[in-house]
């Protein structure tokens, strides 16, 4: 059994220790907000926070995540109150299909924790998630809006 702490709740899971964290979150625990896009840490759709840092959960084994503080997209809003990043996303109508946006929002939330007022260059360096719908223009505007909220 491996013990995980996700969004403040403990979970005991009976899986192979080399199972990617992504699949434990999605299939074993059943939280589907974290998405599978590539499985090779390229696209960022599976981004979660591990001890506050943005991490691509498809590239981390569940045993490496044990004992750490894991936050998923479901854990951002506090009792239904959206974070300022989520609010900016709603306000600026950012998502198109929306599939990449969980990961995008997690990556942006981690960035803003580290750099509360990121420049465009900071954004370019930190946000490397793929969005095939091409929502980048709105994403950038929403990051600045959240930073200034």
């Amino acid at each position: 059994m491996i013990n995980l702490t996700i969004n403040g709740k403990s979970h005991s899971v009976d899986v192979e220790p080399d199972t990617p964290l992504l699949w434990v979150i999605r299939d074993t625990i059943g939280m589907t907000g974290t998405k599978y896009g590539c499985g090779i840490a390229q696209c960022g759709a599976c981004t979660v926070h591990i001890d506050g840092q943005a991490v691509r959960s498809c590239g981390m084994t569940v045993s490496d995540a044990a004992g750490k503080k894991i936050t998923t997209i479901e854990g951002l809003a506090d009792n239904g109150v959206l974070t300022k990043v989520q609010k900016a996303w709603v306000e600026l109508d950012v998502p198109q299909c929306g599939y990449c946006q969980s990961g995008m929002i997690m990556a942006v939330s981690a960035l803003l924790k580290e750099k509360p007022k990121p420049t465009d260059a900071d954004i370019n360096e930190a946000i490397t998630n793929i969005c095939r719908c091409g929502s980048f223009q709105q994403v950038r505007a929403a990051i600045h809006a959240a930073a200034n909220a």
């Binding site: 974290t34 479901e74 989520q86 998502p95 969980s102």
Partner: peptide
């Protein structure tokens, strides 16, 4: 359809 796309729902 935006709200649910920002919360993982």
């Amino acid at each position: 359809d935006t709200l649910d796309k920002t919360t993982g729902k």
